[in-house]
Nucleic acid binder design. Structure first.
Lengths: 150, 150
DNA sequence: AAAACTGTAACATTTTTTATTACTCATTAA
DNA sequence: TTAATGAGTAATAAAAAATGTTACAGTTTT
């Protein structure tokens, strides 16, 4: 079904986080600022003002993409495994967002109507162009660039 | 509060529609295809496969922007008041979407953290650039262009 | 006057997102 | 060698957002 989000990228069984990109970039900015420390999910959560479990969930996603590593146990936490100069916002976008779009109507449109039959296909094409434009922009900004603004 | 949606554009008191853009463009495409008829909300709803009340709600928004007019009573309905050659997707986007963005974390971030203090400001700047790119794209497509794809 | 519309309020339901609690296992340091 | 701290994740609860339904007053046409 065209409008059903599947949450394929998630390690856990339950839902995605809608502020995923914002949260992830917040985490990564903190890790970039303190490259020599393992930051705990509790500490990170305190900066975002978010439940630590949700932070760990986003970190799990970053780990799956080999962007960070974690150390369990006392004094454990998470740190970057990549050079923030080489990681672009486009890659972060792709790890946290299916695609930019302006939405679809919830229900399957009427296939017997010439407009209903093709509306989603035409919207998808439009949104694909949008993604290309946005990707080009995000490709030009590294995590380092973003972090330097703070 | 930075993350509270206010629904300022809405005529009705209650919530916005998330598929607003898709629904609105569907409505407008139908009206463009049948420029001489007053289409009823029930008919339009049948193509979108959506409740007619929600269609009327989006039509109310279009009326507020003087894009369509409605006729009450028997054989009533809605038709375009503008030339679809002169209406761009950018204008439709602006009538139905606050802005393109990749989201914000739900809660106010920690103002005592250098990252928390500035994260939303920096995200907002990033998203503003995204909007500019997307607007440029949408500005180049008229409702007529879009409708001709069907 | 009946039928077919719009307009909108009130409320219900469903879906999505976020938060909480709880527990296992790993690691460190006293 | 144990207490403290932290990751990992399941299960569930709560909150928020989006969509759907019903109802009814008012309008216009036939």
């Amino acid at each position: 079904m065209f409008n059903k989000t599947l949450y394929i990228c998630n390690i856990f069984y339950y839902s995605m986080i809608s502020g995923k990109f914002a949260i992830t970039i917040h985490i990564l900015t903190l890790l970039t600022k303190y490259p020599n420390d393992y930051l705990s999910s509790e500490y990170i959560a305190g900066s975002i003002n978010l439940n630590a479990v949700l932070v760990r969930k986003e970190i799990a996603n970053l780990k799956a993409h080999h962007i960070v590593e974690s150390k369990e146990g006392k004094n454990g936490g998470t740190k970057l495994t990549v050079d923030p100069t080489n990681l672009t916002l486009k890659e972060i976008f792709e790890m946290t967002f299916e695609s930019i779009n302006l939405g679809y109507a919830k229900n399957q449109p009427n296939p017997d109507c010439p407009v209903g039959k093709k509306i989603n296909q035409n919207l998808t094409a439009l949104y694909a162009d949008m993604n290309q434009k946005v990707s080009l922009q995000l490709e030009g900004i590294s995590l380092e660039d973003f972090s330097n603004q703070f």
